[in-house]
Amino acid sequence: MSEMSKIVRTISSISFPLIIIYGLYIISHGHLTPGGGFQGGAVVASGCAMILVAYGSIWTIGKMKEKNLSLLESIGAICFILLAIFGLGFGAVFFNNFLVGSDFLFGTIPSAGSTIANINTGGVIPLMNFAVGIKVIAGLFAIVLVMAHASSTREGKK
């Protein structure tokens, strides 16, 4: 896929950081507001796909190799499973929320009822949100990038 006109490139360059910040906000506030790792990752991957469509696949694959993306996705999956296995070790069962109630990271317990949102709550859930977010960003963007690059090289051969 070749690059588009200068107007499209400028507008997508301006709106790309806003989309990325919105997606990262959804991921990092996943335990307070609606959303989570999967939804925020889908938003960030949509922004990256917009950059891919605007700038063309050859420029994008020069900036971000697909090998690095699959490495990032594997890191997210390993972090997710490792957090679950830590629950098996520190608590009693698989997927145990071992950080809640402790003085370590994300350990505060909110009082019951509707309270003011405190980001230092949630136990292991924000860490799992980050792991799943990295995994979904890398996975969905890798699919679009690899498909666009393969179709563009086939187009050039014709």
Binding site: H31, T33, F95, V100, F106
Partner: peptide, 14 residues
Amino acid sequence: ETGTNNGVTSVVFD
């Protein structure tokens, strides 16, 4: 039990 205000995420991840 989970310390989150968002019930949906705590159901999904915990």
